[in-house]
Each structure stands twice: as C-alpha cells, then as structure tokens.
C-alpha cells in the first residue's frame, strides 16, 4: 500500500469511528443542531421581517437571512463537534489515546476528523436546506455548488476548534472560543444585515473572516447572483482551509506523545 493510500485509509477509519458513534445519537444531534437556526429563521424572518419594511438588497428579510443561517448551521455543526466532542475524545474518554496505540498517526487522525466534519457540515447543511427549499427560498440551480464551501467548512471551522480543544485545560475554557469568537462572528458576518452598513474598521475585519465569505457565497448561489465575487469568496474559504489545516496537528501531538 502506498503512503498516500495508507494515509487516507487511516483517515477513513477515523471517519468510520465517528460515523458509528454519531449513528447512536443522530436524532438528538440533528434536533439540537437544527432547532436554533430554525428558530432564528422563523422568529426573525417572519417576526422581525414583518417590521423590516425595505427590501434587503432587493429580497425579503426571510430570503436574506436563510442562506446565512444555513452557513451558520454548518459552521456550528462542525465547531461543536470538534470543540466539545474533540475535547472529550482527547481528555475524557481516551478515544485519541487508543488510536495512538494503533499505527494511526496524529496527521491521519486530524485528516479523519476533517473528513468527518465535512460530512457533518454537508449533512446538517442539507437538513436545513430542505426547510429553506420548502419555504420556497431557493431561486437558482447554482445552489448545486453549495456543497463545495460546506465541505470546506469541515476544515475551516474544525481546525481552530480542535486546536482550542487540544489547548484547553478545562471544558469551561472552550466556552471562551464559542462566546468570544464564534458568536460575534455569527452576529456580524452578514447573516442578518449587509456588512457594508457597518463602520469600515469593523467591516474590514469581517471581510477577512471565513464565515462572511461562506454566508456571501451561500446567498449568491441560492439567489443566482453569480459574479466574480463568488470566486473570491471561494478562494478565501480555500485559503483558510489550507492555512488552518495543520494548526491542530502540533498541539495534539504535544498532548498525545509526551
């Protein structure tokens, strides 16, 4: 077996482990990852939307926020699993420690986690997509390209969350990442309002964050507003995936091979 084959075969074995574990709790897992964005969509889209008199960039408020919430659903599905469950796999239940007693290496484990998180992102994104579709909020066939950014989310958001999980000393420390990074990013990344309405110094930060580009791309694909900006968004997401992918490897190696 060649090196590359052995690497991906090992990564797939990690994916399979996560899949079997997920299969035991999939109902509650989907419900938990789905309830919040659905509430946001209905309460804000229908409720608040009724008071937002002007159309947002030419579409209704519900229409405006649906693609962003889909991207956020995917981001959260990835972030929560990599952060909390990753922390448990590392600290509480020894799943990673057991993997290390086999021929698996840390880069293979991390690659397996990315494959799995990409799967989660697609899966939870797809469930939300069905709702959005049912509301008649999909207006373009370009939407078939949506799985590309969603799959990349499996690296973009899993890498920092796994890194935080590897560095956190307690479960509580994980919450810093959620409340100081993920939640603000969610609120400001153009899910609920166009970023160009923000002061330039905030907008420029937002433009440099991956979620903004995920939200923007999802919206463009769903509404069929295809332009060079879509390619630009995709490049940003790809760049984040490439730059962040190695981030958790060293931190996990330090924890697993003392």
């Amino acid at each position: 077996m060649s090196h590359a084959n052995a690497f991906w075969s090992s990564a797939l074995a990690v994916w399979w482990r996560n899949f079997l574990a997920w299969r035991k709790f999939w109902r509650s897992s989907i419900l938990l990852n789905f309830g919040e964005p659905l509430t946001n969509l209905l309460a804000l889209g229908l409720g608040l939307g009724a008071y937002v008199s002007s159309m947002m960039q030419g579409v209704s408020f519900l229409q405006f926020i649906a693609p962003g919430l889909l991207a956020v659903t995917a981001m959260n599905a990835v972030t929560f699993d990599s952060g909390f469950d990753g922390y448990d796999r590392l600290n509480s239940n020894g799943v990673y420690a057991a993997m290390m007693t086999s021929p698996l290496t840390v880069p293979e484990i991390v690659a397996g986690e990315y494959l799995w998180e990409a799967t989660r992102s697609l899966l939870y994104g797809a469930v939300f997509f069905i709702v959005v579709l049912a509301f008649g909020l999909v207006h373009s066939l370009w939407v078939v390209l949506l799985p590309i950014p969603l799959a990349l989310f499996g690296v973009v958001f899993a890498a920092p969350a796994l890194y935080v999980a590897a560095r956190a000393k307690t479960h509580e420390q994980l919450f810093y990442y959620f409340s100081l990074v993920i939640t603000p990013m969610f609120m400001f990344s153009g899910v609920f309002f166009p970023v160009n309405h923000l002061p330039w110094y905030i907008a420029d930060i937002i433009y440099a964050l991956p979620l903004y580009h995920g939200v923007d791309l999802a919206r463009s694909l769903m509404l069929g507003q295809i332009s060079l900006a879509c390619l630009w968004d995709l490049l940003w997401i790809l760049g984040y995936a490439a730059v962040l992918s190695y981030l958790p490897v060293k931190a996990l190696e330090r924890r697993l091979t003392a």
Partner: peptide
C-alpha cells in the same frame, strides 16, 4: 494502556 480507553460511544 493503564486507563481503560475503550470507546464509550460504540
């Protein structure tokens, strides 16, 4: 290993 790191989810 010393700790029983069997996978609790399986």
């Amino acid at each position: 290993s010393q700790d029983d790191n069997v996978d609790p989810d399986l």
